[in-house]
Each structure stands twice: as C-alpha cells, then as structure tokens.
Design a protein around this nucleic acid. Structure first.
Length: 112
DNA sequence: TAGATGGCCCGTT
DNA sequence: AAACGGGCCATCT
C-alpha cells in the first residue's frame, strides 16, 4: 500500500501551482487545490497560504474565494495589500468582488 | 480520542 | 441575496 505523499511535497505542489498563476489572473482556493493535485484541499490550502513566510515572492494575493471575494477582510493590513496588488495588476473589483468569469485563470487556455 | 478551528466549497432554503 | 448544513484536509487543545 502506498503511503500518502509527505506534507512537505504537497506544500511544494501548492507553491508551484501558485507560482504558475499569471499576473492579472486569479484562482479560487479550491481551484488551486485541484491544480496542485490535492483534490478537495481548499481549506487546507487556505491554511497554508496563511502561513507563508512574509518575504515570499509568491503571488498569494491572486487566490480568492470562489464567489470572487477576497477572503481577507478589507480592514486588515493583508486584506488591503491584496486588493492593492490586484488593482495594480489590472484586476478590477466591483462591490469588493472580482468578476470570476473574466479574471479566473484557466491553465488549459494559457496560450496567451 | 473527540471536538473545535482555519484566508473554503457547494447545494439547498 | 443571504443564511445554513455537510463535506473536505490538517492542526491544535
């Protein structure tokens, strides 16, 4: 029988998938979990992202909730930074929501 | 060992 | 549109 992959490698998988997201695009937590080969690890992914080292160059801000809202509250420092970074990349928010139909990244059509 | 807790998700009310 | 409940994976009490 096969032992489950070590946590560390799953974390790496999340990082790789995260690093692959182009600027100006976003993904949901669940989607990121899928991309990393974790299936339904959405919640765990959220936990991992909340624990990234501060100096990390990874685009954590491109991961938002499935309904298009950044999960971090607007009044938190990280919440403001997230919205600021998204805006800087050209991702517009309406009523604090991102239009997923437009900005959601689909790896299959990443031919751009 | 059981319950509660997380930057969640989805179908149903 | 918003609230609720069950499910998901891992960690912490």
């Amino acid at each position: 029988m096969r032992a489950p992959p070590p946590l560390e490698s799953r974390r790496q998988a999340v990082f790789l998938a995260l690093a692959a997201i182009p600027a100006g695009r976003v993904v949901s937590y669940g989607q990121l979990a899928e991309l990393a080969g974790l299936g339904r690890g959405a919640r765990w992914v959220g936990w991992v992202l909340g624990r990234l080292p501060e100096g990390s160059a990874l685009p954590w801000h491109r991961v938002i909730a499935a309904d298009g809202r950044p999960s971090l509250t607007q009044d938190s420092p990280s919440g403001r930074e997230q919205r600021e970074r998204l805006r800087a990349e050209g991702v517009l928010l309406h009523e604090d929501r991102v239009d997923m139909r437009r900005y959601r990244w689909n790896p299959a059509e990443s031919v751009e």
